[in-house]
Design a protein around this nucleic acid. Structure first.
Length: 951
RNA sequence: GCCGGGGUGGCGGAAUUGGUAGACGCGCACGACUCAAAAUCGUGUAUCGCAAGGUGUGAGGGUUCGAGUCCCUCUCCCGGCACCA
């Protein structure tokens, strides 16, 4: 037997497959269903890394298996060749980006081909090909004509190092996603596309997709839908009003001031003594504040959360619910770009407003009472419901840190001082009165009211009524002025005064839930209650639930409104290496799209493509490119010089694969119908809220333009894991832990690398796996054992292998379909172990085994196939079938348990009856059962027998 | 803080969806071959214990004849969002 020479074998078969074009995929194949397996196309960065292998060589296993099963599988590849990384590298090496990129593509194509993946290279696309970007431009113009692409001057993210604008999605924690520079905000005129028009269906349609929950949830978070209301606040002495967005319309009666973002148009106007707030008396100070807020970078805003702000003096707004005139503030905790850029502040029920109100001493009004139901004493049906305002008088002795309590003589409980609030009495007055009446203490020092009322429902047995108590607690302390007077005899008869630690309270007249709230309020300096509950002090709405009130108050004082965190996608980039935006600016005719016949607008070769930081693309310096005739008036006009974000290129590349050479359309409708939607899209988790979201939006826009037939591009999506260095850290040159796949392929072979990566862990779960050099060698060892097993082939009769083989065919098929390549390989290893054990395998059994191996190690399988005398490629063979009956052993081992603990084993026939199993089981644990009474026997066919015994 | 995912040997990971926990591989130990080493092959390898026998799937509780799997409480790790009203 010749030794296993992977170099020779892999080269030989890669050439053979290319020569015979066995992976060229027809648009349709008679009698075969189409299956579209997509992987994210790579940047031509110059070198293939292990991640590329993991991304391309492992899904290839599925592609190959499905082909053998009789599917017409499209597994295409291309290059996402425009963009910053390529351009920056080109600048660094002093080359033209095109030369550099094309050289990389040539080199990487060879590298990818060394994987032995079944890509259909005849469908290769490259985004820098004018025949491709012609259609990128065309599609952009379709969006433009539909009003989905527009130019707007807004505050944008500017990367000072890359000297270009970035989309929100490309800014991570205030830094550039690519170069990690701190992003600054700039006011610039930019091309946007209206992804926000699709925010709703981008969220809703997630429900229709068979995607991992994690990806869906990330997209939902990113889009950030929030349902609430817009409410108009009239401005005093003005006809105009400020519109706020809130999700808590139920707290409207608790709104004690308004806050506008520093960027709010009314604020900007007020600084110029204009607009509804023209009457402010402190414009200078407000101006200073706005300027300082403006200067803050995104990072500074995130780092310092200290509340700052300034009141607009001399103006008031009117709370529409209670008609109260309330102050108006400007603060940068309100963001101009979200909602309406203005909020109604409800400090009692919003943590940020609370913090702000504390700092600037603004009033806090409680309007939502937490609802507590006494579960031991619930309302009884048929009894009257009596509503009562109650007060809880809490007195702390600072010397001992104990609390004044009453121990009741007739009841087994201890309580704080509790009583009703009388007509016209304030909470504090009521509390003082009750404490005085019941304990004699007077002249107590008021500490504070404890954060608004609590709504408690219970059955008051002593009064035989269902009680609803709206209880407010007030905290006092003993101090030098405090005196104690005589208490009435009936009070002393009812209870005695004790000083207790709150933990010692045994309070049966109140729930623990309520007590918890009160205690936490005693111990914290106060906080906002942001939960739901029952409305208090809210006029006619008092008593309704927060949920009802959100609806009714919205209806009365505002209107329902849904807002999104998602911003429109800024697609213009001030860089050279991208698709020119096909627009002409004419001084008299305005913005004119380039006519279809003039597409593509070619990216000109220029000498100087370095960005100069002026905020204009290097293309602006290419005079012959810029200066054109206006298509409309034939006057002087200029081309748009910004280029498109590369995420535009990649938003439709999967459509081009269906018809990559079409000259008259981005892809033929019929050919699109053959392949779309993508059946399975495998890619990296880093694209979840970028490429994956952009391309869903783009596709939906094309769907509305009737250019594609489905509203979602990808039926099934899976995120791939990450391969780490051998040290368990992310591979990086500086750490010196980078594995060069070319080198491993040289020493161990492509088949080994493919199979190792498939074996490293389940492919359909997101995780990270360290590259284990010993593990790769282990896989190589397996392949060499396969190679040596040739010597056993040709045995005449090996029935012992029949069940293992059928099991293996079943398991490998199922596991590949589920993307659990690791367990499929484990099963192949087990079968090889069996062959080695018997030192024999029939030709037919060997052939089936090779077919199972073919998707994983296509070269070796092909070589062994050909060595066994076959002429046709193994990859054109059918997937082996199994006989269900032969996947089960004739005799099986069952577990024997006593009281659920495994105590022995028994051998029984596969189809053994319960009685037969029991009998065999009983025998195997006879000693342990001796003298014990079997109370119950559980027999699970094919699994186990469990004896439940006593004694 | 909110939302999503997860925690199993020394390591990567298995476990037919409630039925013998640790498949398969790596590593390690011992043995065979060898002057020796490598390669290869064989045996063993959750843990405590000489053994009988215990104990074990992040922690604690519950349901069940039986729990890695279901329920409750907590904890830690990963990911998304976060001054978003």
């Amino acid at each position: 037997m010749k030794p296993y020479d992977h170099k020779k074998i892999e080269k030989k078969w890669q050439q053979y497959w290319a020569r015979h074009k066995i992976y060229t995929t027809p648009d349709t194949a008679p009698g075969k269903d189409n299956f579209y397996l997509l992987v994210e196309f790579p940047y031509p960065s110059g070198n293939l890394h292990v991640g590329h292998w993991y991304a391309f060589a492992v899904p290839d296993i599925l592609a190959r298996k499905m082909r053998m099963e009789g599917k017409n599988v499209l597994y295409p590849i291309g290059f996402d060749a425009f963009g910053l990384p390529a351009e920056n590298a080109a600048i660094k090496h002093g080359l033209n980006p095109r030369t550099w990129t094309e050289k990389n593509m040539t080199y990487m194509t060879k590298q990818i081909q060394s994987m032995g993946a079944s890509f259909d290279w005849s469908r290769k696309v490259s985004t820098i090909d004018p025949a491709y970007y012609k259609w990128t431009q065309w599609l952009f113009l379709q969006l433009y004509k539909k009003g989905l692409a527009y130019q707007k001057e807004t505050a944008v993210n500017w990367c000072p190092k890359d000297k270009t604008v970035l989309a929100n999605e490309q800014v991570v924690n205030g830094r550039c996603e690519r170069c990690d520079s701190e992003i600054v905000q700039k006011q610039m005129l930019q091309w946007n596309v209206k992804i926000t028009d699709y925010a709703n269906c981008l969220i809703d349609d997630l429900d229709t997709l068979d995607w991992p929950e994690q990806i869906k949830e990330s997209q939902r978070n990113w889009i950030g839908r929030s349902e609430g209301a817009e409410i108009d606040f009239k401005i005093a002495r003005s006809e105009e009003s400020v519109t706020v967005f809130t999700t808590r319309a139920d707290t409207l009666f608790g709104c004690t001031y308004l806050v506008l973002a520093p960027e709010h148009p009314f604020v900007i106007a007020a600084l110029k003594k204009d607009g509804p707030f023209a009457g402010i008396t402190n414009a200078d100070e407000v101006g200073k504040y706005v300027a300082s807020a403006d200067k803050k970078t995104e990072l500074e805003r995130q780092e310092s959360r200290e509340k700052t702000g300034i009141e607009l003096k001399g103006v008031k707004a009117i709370n529409p619910a209670n008609g109260e005139a309330i102050p108006v503030w400007v603060a940068d905790y309100v963001i101009g770009s979200y909602g309406t850029g203005a909020i109604m502040a409800v400090p009692a029920h919003d943590e940020r407003d609370f913090e702000f109100a504390k700092k600037f001493d603004l009033p806090i009004r409680h309007v939502i009472a937490p609802r507590v139901v006494d579960e031991r004493n619930p309302h009884r049906p048929g009894k009257d419901v009596v509503f009562r305002k109650t007060i809880l008088g809490i007195v702390r002795d600072p010397a001992t840190n104990k609390f004044l309590c009453l121990r009741w003589k007739k009841h087994p409980w201890t309580t704080f001082v509790v009583g009703g609030v009388e007509e016209g009495e304030s909470w504090v007055e009521a509390a003082r009165r009750e404490i005085h009446e019941e304990t004699g203490y007077t002249n107590l020092k008021l500490v504070r009211s404890l954060g608004g009322p609590i709504y408690t429902e219970f059955f008051a047995a002593h009064k035989d009524v269902n009680r609803i108590a709206l209880g407010t607690s007030v905290l006092f302390e003993l101090d030098a002025n405090t005196t104690r007077e005589e208490v009435r005899a009936d009070e002393t008869a009812a209870h005695e005064v004790v000083w207790l630690d709150p933990l010692e309270l045994t309070w049966d007249r109140m729930t623990h839930a309520e007590l918890d709230i009160v205690l936490s309020r005693i111990h914290s300096a106060g906080s906002a209650y942001t939960g739901d509950g029952i409305l208090a002090d809210s006029g006619e709405f008092t008593g309704s639930t927060a949920e009802e009130a959100r609806r009714s108050l919205t209806q009365r004082y505002g209107r329902s409104k849904t807002t999104y965190r998602l911003r429109d996608w800024i697609v213009s980039r001030q860089r050279y290496w991208g698709v020119p935006i096909p627009i002409i600016h004419c001084a008299s005719c305005g913005t004119i799209p380039v006519a279809e016949k003039d597409l593509p607008v070619r990216l000109p070769a220029v000498r100087d493509y370095l960005p100069d930081g002026s905020g204009r693309s290097p293309l602006a310096k290419a005079k012959t490119f810029v200066n054109v005739k206006c298509p409309k008036c034939k006057g002087k006009a200029q081309r748009e010089t910004d280029t498109l974000d590369t995420f535009v290129d990649s938003s439709w590349y999967f459509l081009r694969y269906a018809d990559p050479k079409n000259k008259t359309r981005f892809a033929d409708t019929k050919k699109l119908a053959n392949w779309m939607p993508v059946d399975l899209y495998s890619g990296g988790a880093e694209h979840t809220t970028m490429h994956l979201l952009y391309s869903r939006f783009w596709h939906k826009a094309l769907y509305d333009l009737k250019l594609v037939r489905e509203s979602e591009p990808y039926t099934h999506r899976m995120n791939r894991s990450i391969i780490l260095g051998p040290d368990g850290q992310k591979m990086s040159k500086s750490r010196g832990n980078v594995i060069d796949p070319d080198e491993v392929v040289r020493t161990l072979g492509a088949d080994t690398v493919r199979m190792y990566l498939a074996f490293i862990g389940p492919y359909n779960e997101v995780s990270s796996y360290p590259w284990n050099p010993d593990g790769v060698v282990g896989v190589r060892r397996f392949l060499e054992r396969v190679w040596r097993a040739q010597e056993y082939v040709g045995a005449k009769n090996v029935p012992e292998l029949e069940v293992p083989l059928n099991k293996t065919i079943k398991k490998v098929g199922e596991d590949i379909a589920a993307m659990k390549f690791n367990t499929a390989i484990a099963q192949l290893m087990m079968f090889l172990n069996d062959i080695e054990e018997y030192k024999a395998v029939e030709k037919k059994q060997w052939a089936a085994f090779l077919k199972l191996l073919a998707p994983f190690s296509p070269h070796m399988a092909e070589e062994l196939w050909s060595l066994s005398g076959k002429k046709k490629s193994i990859h054109l063979e059918g997937w082996p079938e199994y006989d269900e009956a032969k996947t089960r052993d004739a005799t099986i081992t069952i577990a024997v348990q006593i009281n659920g603990k495994t105590r022995g084993e028994a051998r029984v026939a596969a189809g053994a009856s319960g009685e037969a199993m029991e009998a065999a089981a009983k025998q195997s644990v006879a000693q342990r059962l001796d003298g014990k009474e079997i109370v119950r026997t559980v027999a699970v066919p094919g699994r186990l027998v469990n004896f439940v015994v006593k004694g």
